[in-house]
Design a binder for these strands. Sequence first.
RNA 1: GACCCUUUCAUCUAGUGGCCAAGGAUGCUGCGUUUUCAUCGCAGUCACAGAGGUUCAAAUCCUCUAAGGGUCGCCA
Length: 485
Amino acid sequence: MIHHLLTPSLLQSLSLIHIFKGLIMTVARFAPSPTGYLHIGGLRTALFSWLWAKKMGGKFLLRIEDTDMARNSQEALVAIIEAFEWVGMDYDGEVIYQSQRFDIYNQYIVRLLEESKAYKCYMSKEELDALRESQMKAGERPRYDGKYRDFDGTPPLGVEPVIRIKAPQEGRIIFRDGVKGEIDIAADEVDDFVIARADGSPTYNFVVAIDDALMGVTDVIRGDDHLYNTPKQIVVYNALGFALPNFYHVAMINNEQGKKLSKRDGATDVMEYQKLGYLPEALLNFLVRLGWSYGDQEIFSVEELQTIFEPKSLSKSSSNYNLDKLLWLNAHYIKNKTNAELAQLLHPFGIDIREHDERELLLDATKERGKTLVELAEQIMMILKAPESYDEKAVKKGFKADSKETLLDFITMLEGWDKALHLPCDYHNVLEHFVATKEIGFGKIGQPLRIALLGSMTGSSLDEIMAIIGTKETADRVKRAIALL
RNA sequence: GACCCUUUCAUCUAGUGGCCAAGGAUGCUGCGUUUUCAUCGCAGUCACAGAGGUUCAAAUCCUCUAAGGGUCGCCA
């Protein structure tokens, strides 16, 4: 009987998974350190986290890792928000600044000290350096030797102590990484690391663990340069009795030569892509496919990604930045924009054709010829403005001795045309009629005309160009070319 | 130096023991469409890092080697 009552939809709404999801919401986060701009690699990690949170119906939080007070975190935040806005990403709740949470961290330091899970270490920097050096020489991994771990004597004078946490001295630290699989490290590889500096300020690996736990972060997606920090953070989680989140360590992006991406490789700041004429949807599509895949699919809208993204299909190995593919994607997204959208997007690139009479024609004639908005703007300018110079090679090849006469004959026919000339097909008729009556090949008029109108051998179709600029401007440009060439 | 991670076409990747003499995409080359260029369509080019094992069967599992990367801070 019960079977009949439990319809699939009823089952779904009653299912354990549903209830479970309601209890434990996915909380992802992006936690950049304030560098002043958002790095392209950072955007990708943020994107992965954001998509995952969206897909799970969870939250995506933003936290600024500014325990190092020297850098201006406010300025950095503005840059990050600007980039987020440009690509259409958002975050939930208030931005958290670690610099404003020192009292919280201090409470935990006091607690660990009281529980003797942490201790004061009086080792001087010189002593520490010497220790490391001798360990290196002995072929060991350099690490603090635990000298003050169980110290109860008289502390040396003149040394402000740091606070170190007691890391396990034997056994293994094992955790499951959602990308790399099981990570297994000997516990003694992790030394008693510093959780508070001599001036009392807390350190990175300590505050990250605390904040992630306090913010309820369930899924930590970050670059795999943090892989080795994870066991340290696990030590903190364990000492404080916090539940571990899921970790996903994403492999890095290298440059086209396979080396670490640096400023020398060109655009690393997300906002540079805007200036270079890339569309945010192209950038995101490009980045998401760098280290992540979904079968054979290449083109993804953000909306679709929000329903299909899974960090488990993240790649384990690093990937190379590939400009050709970005360009291809950008061209794809430009082609698929409406002309009204393009006119709007072009405005910051010095082209205002939002109210232009021939806006539709102009963009139809050019949008397949620009891989970036910058290139598209150039294409449009070529049509809108009479050429200031004529490409030498083109003239040599396409502007022959008899070209001037042919052109003159053509504009005579054009100006004497008895029907109205508006559409590309109207001009097409003139051109066809001209070629037919003169009994010449199309190249005889096509090439010189193109050079006269654009100054170049390549570009949009002549019909379209003439329809956009009109009969008078066509004639003017032809006359000018005849005079100059 | 120690520890950890990675390794499929030039590049991004599919691939979880037989469907793989390895698929898609970008790039490149050619052809077609186009009065040019571009777009588009079609075709071609190109890879399992190497060596051993396990198995009837290995890109897929194991071992070693090599190469690349990361980490070893009172930076994050």
